[in-house]
Structure formats: C-alpha cells, structure tokens
Write a protein that binds this DNA or RNA. Structure first.
Lengths: 343, 343
DNA sequence: ACCTTGTATGCACACGTGTTCACATAAGGA
DNA sequence: TCCTTATGTGAACACGTGTGCATACAAGGT
C-alpha cells in the first residue's frame, strides 16, 4: 500500500507529505547528517558557527527530529500513559487536570485513556504498542489485565486512589479511613446522635475505607449508623438517597461518601424537604471540591489533597525511572477535616 | 551513553528491559520474522495454522508490535495532539472528556497538552517531534505559533470554540451570537427593561460574539445594556461582578457570558444581597452545564452542545485524514435557549 | 503439456535517527 | 621534534518494523 520511492524523487500526490528530515537539513546547510543530529544533541562536539547555521536551516525548513526514530535509539520515549477511568466525578476532572499539567512540566507527554469500557482488555492492547515510560492509573479502573501486562512488560505502574501491594508497583492514596474517622468524631462531639451514611457504588477504593473510618469514629462515642444506603457518587444520587433515608428514618446527620453526593443531599434536605442545614440535619462530604467552599453550600468535608497527590505521583515516577528496580512504595497523603457550615 | 550490544547477548543490568521483538517471536515459533509481521497484518497471505501458532507465541512472550518502528513505515501514527488551553471552566472539562473518549473510540491516541503557559512556543516545540495525524485546539488557546507550525508542517488543524478562516483549517463553534440573541429577546419579551451584562476576559471566542448577540437581541426591542462589566468566566468573578453591578445600578436582569459566572451572580443576588431570583433580578448564563439543571440553580441559559461539537470534530478529523487537500470547513452548531427558572 | 491464478514464504530494503568508531586537525608541553 | 590532549567530522551500525520482490508450490482450465 505504501509507495516505494527515493527521497529525492517527487511523488505525484502523496497522501501525507513527507516530513523534513535531517538529511534535508544537512543538504541545505552543506554538512553531514551526523552534524545535524549533533546540533540537536546537548554536549556534542560541534563547531559553534556550524551549529548555528544548522539550527537556522532547521528553523527555516521546519525540521524537528522525528521522535519515533529517536525513540528507537533512546531508552526513554517520554510518553506516559494515563488511564483515568470513567471521569464521572468533578474530583476526577480536577485531579487529572493537575496531573496532566504536572507531567508536561517535567517533560513527559501524557497519552490519556478514559472511559469505562476502554479500560478493558481489547481496547487497552494498543497502548502497549507504544514504548511508554510508565503508566499512571486512577484507582477506580485498576483492571487486573493492566497490572499483569505491566508486570510482564516491565512497565512502571503508578496507581492513584487506592493501595495496591505488588512487587514493583507504586501507589498513592489519601488517608480515607483517618479522614472519615475524624469527621465522624466531629459530628458526634457536636451532639449528633442519629446519623446515616450514603455510600458510593462498589468497586471504588473509598468503598471500603471511608465507611469503615466513619464507623470507627462513631464507635469511639458509643454510636453506630442508624441507616446506610448505597448510591453512585453523583449529585442526583445524593438527592435521591437523602430523601429515601429521611423518609424512613429520623436522622440529625448524614455523612456522604463524597462532596457531590453531599451537595445533592443538602439540596434534598433544604429545597425538597424544607428542613434546615445544619440546624435540623447536618451533612458532610469528602474530597473538598472547589464547589464545597462556595457560600451556597459551605460544606463541611474532608480534604482529598490534589496538589499533594499529584506531587507524589510525579516524585514516584521520576524516582522509578531513575531506579526501575527499587521496591514498590506506598504513599498515604493527609486528609484533614475542613469544618465549614453544614455540621 | 547507550550501550551497544547484540540482541542475543545478555546485558548486565539494563536500565530498561529490552522489549520483546518480532524476531524473538519468530524464533520461538520457528518461522521467519516476516511471518510474524504478517500475522499482525490484516489480509496478508499466511497459513492459518501458522498464524495461530505465532499469535500464541506472541501472547506468551507478551509481544506487541512496536508502534514507533511501525510508525516509521506507515503514513499514519494514530496519535492526535489535543491542546486544551487553561481548562478553567467546568465546560472545558466536560467537552475535553467527551472528546478524549471519542478519539479513543475511533482508534486515535490523544496526547493532551494543557495549561496556559504550555501553549507558548518553547513548550510546544516538542510535540512537533511526533508525527501526529492532526492537532485539535480549543478556542481559547489558538496561538499563532501553532497555526503557523501546522501550516508549515502540513499538520491538519481542527479548532473548536472559535472560527478560524485559513486555507486547510477546519473549525467548529456554536452559534454564540444567535444563542445570546434569542436569550436577550426572551428577557425583553418577558418584561425586563434594565439589563446588565457580565462579560468574560478578553482573548476568548465568546468575548466578541456573545455580547454582540445579546446587544442585537435587545436592540430589536429598543433596549440596550444599562451597564457592562468585565469578569473572568469564574464563579467568584460572577459573585463579585454582580455585587458591583447592582451596587451602582438598579437592574432587573443580568446576562452572564457563561454558566459559572451566572451561578456566582445568582448567589450574590440571593445570599449576599437578599433579593429574589427571578422576581427581583433575572439571571441568565451560557453553556448549559450539568449544574445548570440542578434544582438549586435551575438556570435559564443557552446550550453549548458538547455532543454535537465533539461529533463534528471527529467527523472533520476523519474526512480530512481521508482527503488532506479538501478545503477548510467551518461548522456552526445550534445553540438553543434552555428556558428554566431564572428569567 | 502449458499457462494462469491463488497462496505462501524468505530476503532485503527503507523508514529517520543517535552514537560509536576511526580518523583528522590543532594546540600545548617536554 | 614528539607525545598528549582536546576538539571536529563523516562513515557506518543499530533500533524494529512493514512490505515489495522474487520464488515456490498447488490447483484448475485449455
């Protein structure tokens, strides 16, 4: 399908124009191709004046060293695959946004794979064709297929949002348990006694740790949840779940698995049921979205620290690239309570 | 710096393990390397039983054809660069999310460049090292450097969010003018007479079209803006701007350049100034974020159609790849008024 | 018997680059 | 003068793949 042709003969109507190549620049500058390569290589022996002439010609012709060809020589491709999962929550967007900017800032090119069904085997196959320097995976979407493939191909794997203990795998997560623990104690200490919990869908990291932390916190005060309901981490889920919960139980507080659920719950309590927050019912979230600080909601929550998390991911990435054989590391970031007006 | 060594000799402690190569698979399956290549090529002559044996060996060894080496032969790399700009607004997140999923769905690998300063020349240089199939740029960040480079290197360029008339450049934008025009008429028709406008920061596409559309709509009813103020498209910007506006003028409606600003303005009117929306002051937005439909806000706005926009971007991409020489196309998507409860 | 057609397979080339190697030149010290 | 060191330079190799080319074999038609 590919027309075979020499460089110097013109194609009649090529489908994609041929890239400007180092040989072209060499010809234009009257030097060898090696010299052109050296002009773009830091610290290579090359006459200063000749180097400037080459770079000028390159600029003129629009030459950029082909990263594919270079990648065949070098051991680093500078491409990092980022598997984001479903991107359902606002928190995911904020985190991924920071992560992508951070990767660019350290000279890595992020290739982003998002969507639920795309995290499954057949769709992910293709990414392993690229010699990526590493893969970064958001917690929700840790498919065993990915773990196995990375282990087999020796691709550094960094997981964010849940803890995975595997030989060479690094992971970063916030202290979900501790955050919820402290938040529950805050509620209990301020006199709440009939407390409910709106959980998220299964298969997420927080599924286990967050409710467990809350339960443990309540237990310290001799309390336990009056009722628990499972929702889907969404605003509408929270809106619905809070109504269901309050229709069946007389609660003076509802803890939610994340901020979006909590904001839905606030709306249900205030606008639908006509009760007051926090006077009648306290509401708490988890994540500390930007929205949580808006005066509309002024949500008492736990901070899921984006900046720290991203910084740790980048640190782990760079350290592992420097030393691929170092043992897998697990980083837990602090998740402090942010006490605002809904408790 | 790179150790020179034959394939079959073992390295002492290689920095990155050598990838499994087609030659390895060939050796394991007892066939020629060409056969391995053909096993992964659709429609190549190859004995069925031999093909299955090769694929089994490949699976066993964890072989994936190296996309870099393949990309040197083929005319398509299947990589698409996506330049997102600052990602300041919620709308940007939603759009980019859909776009990335859409690209994956048609077999393209998105490389994402985000951040304001990264859209400048030096940081963008590197991306031109990759033989990307195309570049997709969000309106806010159309740097002339990018336009020039793409033109010179003959890289297909698709711009979303503003209209750029250039020879081979495609662009998609919604009918900002028409949407605001209709919205302004709606306000005027429902009796509003003292109307203000909160604009966004300059250098964005909507800067020009949205206020112009609104003005034209008011003019049809013999009205014009009582006051205009420039903000930054953000929630806090809207919160502040609405207070300033209402402190200096007696308005019965405020039109905002986007939804986030409008939500800030609603909060200012209701929670800070203690007035009612829409009884005392009507508020309108633009974009129709998911949040705009929440009962908390129930915002009257204009739909900036994400699904259509992404579909058009993908269509333009595929058509241009099929026919690189076709004239640049400009697509305008419909931006219908979404009348809810704040007008 | 011969030609045509379809299938199968290995060799060798080309893609565009980084880097080693051998070699050339120049400067400086003994 | 000779040796050492630093600096430049081009030829050649290697990275891993897709595919054109030549060849081979089998089947079928005349």
């Amino acid at each position: 399908m590919l027309r075979r042709m020499k460089h110097n003969e013109d194609a009649v109507a090529p489908n994609r124009p041929r890239r400007v190549t180092a040989t072209d620049v060499a010809k234009a500058a009257g030097v060898s191709r090696s010299a052109v390569s050296r002009a773009f290589t830091q610290g290579a022996y090359l006459d200063q004046e000749k180097k400037e002439r080459i770079l000028a010609c390159a600029q003129e012709l629009g030459y950029h060293p082909n990263a594919f060809a270079a990648g065949l020589q070098t051991t680093q491709s500078n491409i990092v695959a980022v598997i984001t999962g479903e991107m359902r929550s606002q928190y995911d967007h904020e985190l991924v946004d920071h992560l992508l900017k951070g990767l660019l800032a350290i000279g890595k090119w992020p290739m982003v794979l998002s969507g639920r069904e795309l995290a499954s085997a057949p769709n992910l196959q293709g990414i392993f064709g690229f010699p990526v320097d590493a893969m970064i995976v958001r917690g929700g979407s840790v498919d065993p297929f990915v773990t196995n493939a990375c282990a087999k191909l020796q691709i550094p794997l960094i997981i964010s949002g849940c803890i995975v203990k595997a030989p060479l795998v690094d992971s970063v997560s916030c202290r979900n348990f501790d955050g919820m623990f402290a938040l529950a104690k805050l509620l209990a200490a301020s006199g709440r006694r009939r407390i409910g919990f709106i959980d998220g869908v299964p298969n997420r990291a927080s599924k286990a740790e967050r409710p467990a932390g809350a339960k443990a916190g309540l237990a310290e005060h001799g309390l336990s949840f009056v009722a628990t309901i499972t929702s889907d981490y969404s605003y509408h889920g929270g809106l619905q779940a809070a109504q269901t919960l309050l229709a069946e139980h007389d609660l003076d507080a509802i803890m939610c698995a994340n901020d979006e659920t909590a904001i839905g719950a606030i709306t249900a309590v205030q606008d639908v049921l006509g009760k007051r927050v926090p006077e009648d019912v306290a509401i708490t979230g988890f994540d500390n979205l930007k929205m949580a600080a808006w005066p509309n909601f002024n949500l008492t929550t736990v901070q899921n620290p984006i900046r720290d998390t991203v910084a740790q991911i980048l640190r782990l990435l760079q350290e592992r690239l420097a030393n691929p054989a170092k043992p897998g590391e697990t980083v837990l970031t602090d998740a402090p309570v942010v006490a605002r007006g809904t408790h």
